[in-house]
């Protein structure tokens, strides 16, 4: 239980500080740490393949995309710190989030969830079994996800690339 508590506290602390900071680069770097903490949770729970997928996709890829987006959308070399957000909205958001976490925690704590499975071992699943299942009974879903990723990445390139008329406007 102790490793879980440590992982949870580290992940929550980095995520909370990242959401509160005003420097976008620091927020992005702290969120990378938070995603790493989530990968550590997957390792602790015995889902090694998911942990490595999390490291590859979030810590490796999405973090780079986020950092590039931060760097491409600043107006000058020093424009990284954000203007302060409105206090009223922050207060309303914290009240809403607190209410949601209160309801969820109350529901979780008052339910008898998992009372009988305290000492159970993790379900054993090898990467070979996982691959066989993915290519076997889940092959259709795998194809759909492949198509989705292709379309999404092509669409992202089309949306983010400058169109020609605009470039000529910039030049003139």
């Amino acid at each position: 239980m102790l490793p879980l508590v440590v992982i949870a506290l580290l992940t929550l602390a980095t995520a909370a500080v990242a959401m509160a900071l005003r420097n976008l680069i620091h927020s992005a770097l702290l969120l990378i740490g938070s995603w790493g903490g989530i990968a550590a949770f997957y390792l602790w729970a015995g889902a090694e393949f998911v942990a490595f997928a999390q490291v590859l996709v979030y810590v490796g890829a999405i973090s780079m995309v986020v950092l590039f987006a931060v760097l491409l959308t600043r107006r000058s070399r020093t424009d990284i710190a954000l203007a302060p957000d409105s206090v009223g909205r922050a207060f309303a958001a914290i009240v809403t989030g607190g209410a949601v976490v209160g309801v969820l925690a109350g529901a979780i704590l008052s339910s008898p969830l998992g009372a009988g499975t305290v000492a159970g071992n993790a379900p054993a699943i090898s990467v070979r079994d996982l691959g066989l299942q993915l290519m076997g009974s889940h092959a259709a879903a795998l194809l759909v996800v492949g198509g989705l990723l292709t379309v999404a990445l092509l669409g992202a390139v089309v949306i983010a690339s400058a169109d020609r008329a605009e470039k000529e406007d910039d030049r003139s």
Binding site: M1, L4, V5, A8, T11, L12, F41, A45, V100, V101, L104, A105, I108, L109, S111, L113, G114, A115, T117, V118
Partner: peptide
């Protein structure tokens, strides 16, 4: 229980 702890973490 550990499951409740995990669920509290995720919420």
């Amino acid at each position: 229980s550990p499951l409740q702890l995990c669920l509290l973490f995720s919420s």
